[in-house]
Structure formats: C-alpha cells, structure tokens
Design a protein around this nucleic acid. Structure first.
Lengths: 202, 202, 202, 202
DNA sequence: AGTTAAGCGAGACGGTACGTCTGGTCTTGCC
DNA sequence: GGCAAGACCAGACGTACCGTCTCGCTTAACT
C-alpha cells in the first residue's frame, strides 16, 4: 500500500533532497532543546534549516513526527537490540536498568523524549509509531532475555514474561515521568532485585 | 509568600464569581472530551462558559491549569485518601489496583487525564502541582498500607516502601501510558501477586 | 419629573465631588498631551485621577465630552466674548486674527483642540456642543464687530456678515487643519487685508 | 529611500494579490458608510473581504490608511487635475466652487471623507499623505488658474496666490467642517464674488 | 443622633478588537 | 518535479479597554 487515501498524491521519495531532510531533523532537535516542544514551530524549523515550510509538510504530518524521526537512532534499530546474557539474570538486568537510567538522565535526550512521550497522549497514531519503532523492539529484547532465564530455571514457570518485563521497567518510567524522586543506579539495582525476587521459583 | 513576582498584583479572590468558575471548569471538561487537549482553546472555553477570556486569564495561567482544577475532586482529597486494611495485604492490593484499572479505563476521565499527564512533561511546574495535589496523597496512602503490612510481618523488613509502591503502580501506568496491552482486572491481580512475592519475607 | 428619558436616573449633582471632577479634567488634559487622543482611555484618566471609572461614566458620556469640559475656559465664556472696537476695522481684525493665530500655535492647547476637532466629525452631537459653547460665541462677536463697521460705512451694505466672517476665519482654520503652511502674524495680516478689500464699498 | 526602519522587511509587492486588495478597499468603504469610522474595525474589513487579517496588516499601517487608498480615485489623479479656463475668472471659480460644494454634499463620500479628515488630526503622517496625494494637486490647480487670471490682469499684481486660494476654499471647508450652515450653490457664488473683489486690481 | 441613601474608589465581570503568531495551502520562479 | 521563498486564509493567542455591575466606605440630608 502506498496511499492511505486514494486522493493523496504521494511525493516522489527518490527525488528527495537528503540535505534538506537532515537539516530539518537537526534544526528540530536543536530548537526543542532550546525552547521546548510547545514553542517548537514548523516555521522556526524551516527558517533554521533554510528550508521552505512546504518541504516539511510534504514529508511529515506534524512537528512530533519530525521529532520522532530525529530521535530514532539513524541506522540500525529495529531488531538488532539485544540484552547481555552472561547467564546471571540479576547481574544482566542491573546492567541494563542502569543503562536505561543513564539514558533517561541524559539531558540532551530529555527534551525531545519528554516531548514525544507527551505528544503520544494526544496523538495515538504517533504513539503507535513510537511504540512500534522504538519501544517495542527494546521490550522484546527484555522478553527474550527473560525467556532465556526462564529456560535456565532462574524464573518460575508459568510467569507471563510480558508482565515480568513491566515489573522491571514500569517503576523506572513512573519515576521519570512523575519526577518524584531521582533516578539512580541504586534505584535500578533495588528494582531489579525486588522484581526478580517475585519472579524466581520458590 | 504572597506573590511570586513583586510586581504582580493579585486579583481579589473574595470578589470572585463562583458561578463563572464552575462554568469554566465544566466547559473545559466538556470540550476536552469532545475535541482533545490540543484543540481545546481558551476562547472556546470562554465562549462555552459564557465568560470573558480575561476572567480565565485572571485566575489560571494556562488551559492545563484550568483542566487540573477541573479534574481535582471538588471537596476533600488531600489526606482523606485511605486504602482498605482488612489485614490481608494481597487482597487489599488487588482491590485497590482493580479500582485504579477501572479509573484508568473510565472514558470520561481519559481525555483530561491524558492531557494533564502529557502537559506535565512540557510544564514541570504543572507537573509539580499535579503530583502534589493528586498523585502524592494517593501514593502516601499506599505507603501507609504497606507499612501496616510490614509491621504485621507480611512484608520483609528493610524494604524501601516507596520502591515497593512503584513496583505496584509503575506497571499499570506504563501500560496505560503506552497503550500496548489492555488494562484488566486479571492484569491488576497478577501485578499484585508478583510484586508482593518479591516483597514478602523468605 | 426631572429626566429626559423615563428610564434614566440622573445623579444628584448637588452631592457631586468637585475634587474628583477637577482631578478628572486635569488628568484628561495631561494624558492627551502626552499620548494623544486615540490612546487617551477612560481607565487611564481614572487611574491618574485616583478615581473610580464609574465616577467618569456617571457624569460624562465619552472621553471627548470630558475633554470638551476640560478645554472650556472655566468661568466666563458664553457671551462675554467681545472683539476690540477702536473704530479702525482693519486694525481691529488684525489684532484679533493675530490672537487667533497665537492660540492655534499654542502647543499646550494643540493636542486637545485637534482631538476635539477630529471627534466632532465622528460625533455630530459633540460637534453641536462644541460649536454652541465655544465656537459660536466667538463667531457672534465677529458678526457684532463687523456690523459695527458696516454701520460706520466701512463695509458695503447688503453684504452677508456671516459669510464675511467666514472669509476671515476660514483661511486660518484651513491652514491649521491641513498643516500645509505655517500660521504667522504676517499671514493673519494679509488675510485681514484681502478679505476686507472684498468687503469695503467701492 | 526604501525602509523607514532598517529592520523592517518589506513584503514582495510583485506577489501581491490584486483581488484581495480590491476586496479590502471595497469592504472598508462599505462598512464605513454603514457604521461610521469609529466602529470600522480591521476584523470586520477582513471578514467582509474574505481575507486574513494579516493581509491587511501586511500592506497598510492602519484602517485610516486603507480608507485613504480606497478613497483616492483609482487611476490618474496626481497632476491631471485642471480647472476650467474660459477667460472669465469669476465664472470659472463659481463653477469650480459649486462643484466642490456638490462633492462635499455627496452623502456617499461624506462618511469616509470626514473620517479621514478627522484622523489626520491624530495622525500627522496620514495627514501629510492625504494632503500630498489628494488635496495639494487640487490646490495647485487653483493656483495655476489664479496665475493665469493674474497674467490677464484680472487679479492684482503682488498678491500671494496661495493665500488667494485659501480665501476661496477656506470658507467652504470651515462651513463643512463645523456644520454650522448649509453649503449651497448660492453660498459658493457669494464666496467667489467677495473673495475675488478683494483680489482684483483697484 | 441615628438612619438612610447617594457618591465614591476599587476592581471583577462579559465582551470586542487589537496586533501578532502559527498552521497549513498555494503560487512563483529557480534548478 | 523537488525546492526556497513567502503571500494567502484562517483563527487562537494574550492584552487593553469598553461600559456595567457589585462591594464596602464615606458623607451628606432627613428624620
């Protein structure tokens, strides 16, 4: 399928100007970092990128969509994501959760990430894309690692690994989202420990 | 403290028109339910409420602030919140998490709640208020109930109850926020069970 | 009955606060001199005069009416106006027209006078009042002086003195109104001379 | 000179939409005739003309400027204006002043003309433009006709023709402006006669 | 002397319009 | 045909004033 609506006339992607595309994505990231998502405007992006507004409207449906593409790691994300597997599930989870904490604390990513996170509440379609292209691949990697642990007898049989995963990442996102308390490595460790304790066989 | 900025001249709250206030809050809730937060405008609220725009700007700093006040249960929320305490911590948590699931699934609350949740990402001050006035009182109730269970020996000593609480509610909010999978009573039960399993003494 | 319109409730003028009245007139004159008539607002007058807005609305129908009252020489204008009569009509007219030129060039009166002059175009009722209370008494004084000259044989019989008067003052007001060329004593003299030349008997 | 302020970025006049321009001018004239200048608003013009407000603000600095352009005869006014020259100066002036009286009595032109006349008092720059683009060309035509009469010996040498002109038109504008007495052909004739009498050689 | 009814300062209110900003579309001319 | 540029229609923004309406408070005048 090429067009959602029959009347839509899709632009010819082969003639697309890659320089303009990069300039737009870079400008969007810069501006969102400077003034926040609310004051990020298509006009400002176009001006900063030295680009006509139509060039943005031609390729993206909204400023959030631009930001989404700007945030997605350029080359290879979809399925390449993999968690470490040393055989020690708790150690591996600590490592990963600490990494997640570090990412969430990264000030350069903070503005666009929060902006996108916010916008998904108002724009479910955007949310679907963000989940599909960024979140879900990572969650699947968790599931695969947990399955490996389950097969090794480190996690009780019969446990829904999807829920297990949410037990691990839910607390981190909750704290990030509400800004109630700081996200630290200690916190990551404790979450990993307590969650795992609920998952291990008795 | 009376004024944030010395130059600000606060309006006289004793002269405030309560009818207008209610009309504004009601109109905001109605409109956000109809067209979503992005298309909710101050002008539309004023028009629907039969009120001048200035009357909104006089008392609220943003449409999000209006919505916040509209969503807060009118009379008595701050500390009255209390969780059931039957002595059976798992049963009580199931009850409460099921209730939370029901609230999150309530279509009438969905639009304003997501709108506020989103806006807190762009407006930290709003987030602070939302946490302080709505979220934190409820979380504290969790902490009190968990402490009671801890004292009854149902939860291991030395466990940080704040983190315990996040283990319970984090997964629910994560699923609500990402719209990945449905929020059901079964899900609430499973989360309660697995989280508690990690908290109980060995 | 005291009221023109049955519904109108006239305020009791005997209880009027003279201090407030003066403060309002003074404030209006000050502000119009500072920012011009367009930016003269009732609110600004009230604020500067330390007066409630209602006190202005109670006694005047518009900001132009305030200005009109502020500009009218306080005590004695209506019929006291009299032109000099030395027996030499040309000399007397030169004196008077030079005086008019001086008044029109007075920078303190310029702003309010132009403002009122302008407003009469949009508000004929105001124009009627301004003519009746300020302009007409002066014009009548001209007519009386011209009649005296006519009776002395210095002005031809049969000449409409109303038109004669307009021949004298019309050019001055035209030049003042259009700001085309400067208003000088020389100009006043020349107008008096040429106009009179058209009025004298052959 | 291109820009008054160096920072101003002038819009590209070659891209201007002529249909919008005409619609705006027509709408302004209509509305001013219906409700008067004070209640003429930019918003109403835009709405009636089916035009965005910005399109008005882009090309005109004020509603008065719009009206000025709307009132200026479209094609060819600047120097084409010429008074009749039959050789009989008094007859010619009667013709012209009668024509002026008719124009000033034209009810369709009355509202916008009075509005502009009024506005020039508050906005000297507008006054300058109105004089330059409308009034002065006509006055110059008077001067040329008077010079022709002077050269024919019908007007005394040494008379300042600029002042002579003001003797003729000043009275008419004074009466129009003050609305004291009606403007009739008889009045025009009398003014022409008396003024000329003052100008002719003895 | 006590009551009562205005005028008064203050400012909240329902409105209208302001002049600006941005959204999203359309047009022009360059490449 | 993509693109930079930017004019265009549309409409929300947040502000300024409008003219009306309470609210207490003075401040007479009239019991």
């Amino acid at each position: 399928m090429v067009n959602k609506t029959p009347a839509a006339k899709a632009p010819d992607a082969t003639r697309r100007n890659e320089r303009s595309r990069r300039a737009i994505l870079d400008a969007a990231l810069e501006i969102v970092g400077e003034v926040g998502f609310t004051k990020l405007t298509i006009e400002a992006i176009a001006a900063r990128a030295g680009v006509g507004k139509q060039t943005i409207y031609r390729w993206w449906p909204s400023k959030a969509a631009v930001l989404l593409e700007a945030v997605v790691p350029e080359g290879l994300d979809p399925l390449t994501v993999e968690l470490p597997d040393t055989g020690d599930i708790e150690a591996d989870l600590r490592t990963v959760l600490r990494g997640t904490v570090d990412e969430l604390n990264n000030p350069k990513l903070d503005a666009p990430t929060r902006a996108l996170s916010a916008e998904t509440q108002n724009d479910p379609e955007l949310g679907r894309q963000l989940v599909e292209r960024i979140l879900e691949p990572q969650l699947q990697a968790y599931v695969r690692r947990l399955r490996s642990a389950q097969e090794a007898g480190q996690i009780a049989e019969g446990i829904d690994l999807r829920i297990a995963l949410e037990l691990l990442v839910g607390p981190l996102f909750h704290r990030w989202h509400t800004r109630t308390l700081p996200l630290t490595h200690d916190y990551a460790d404790t979450v990993a420990e307590l969650a795992l304790r609920g998952l291990t066989p008795r």
